[in-house]
Amino acid sequence: MPFRYFGKINYTPYTKVAEFADELHKGNLVGSKCNDCGEKSFPPRADCANCMSGDFKLVKVKPNGTLVTFTTIHSPPDGFEDIAPYTLGLVDLEEGGRLLSWFENTEPEDIKIGMKVKVIPKIFEEIEEIKLYYALEKE
């Protein structure tokens, strides 16, 4: 599952953490863990921010977190007109790391800073080409 399938529009088809897309396709949210110093990161990174080691593995991350802040985009960029308006949330994951995505299956009035959210791996079903992503939902 090449990384180019990750995102409604993907800008970075090539990356050392491309396996992230395979895991997402299997329904797993994964971050990276340094094999030398144990530093964890979400989003995953191939090069350890702490000790600069390039030896890492992808490890499952608990898909739960707390909403840090959010916005509803009314004026979307190219390629996102069909889903606007959409609400983007910034989420601090329970096990560390941070993630940005949009809300699905959640009433706008229920979205509040500090709320608990879950992160759901998804596949765009209405598009012919495979598009993987993750969405936020109220827990």
């Binding site: 800008y11 970075t12 802040t69 959010f70 916005t71 960029p77 983007l88 940005l100 500090g114 992503y133």
Partner: peptide, 28 residues
């Protein structure tokens, strides 16, 4: 795309959107 294109722009982030998240947090 002034934000991180690998993990953020793929969700339709915009420049006002980033500052809007700052604003929402500052208000909160």
């Amino acid at each position: 795309r002034v934000g991180d294109v690998q993990w953020e722009s793929i969700f339709g982030t915009t420049f006002p959107g980033y500052y809007a998240m700052y604003a929402a947090k500052h208000m909160n």
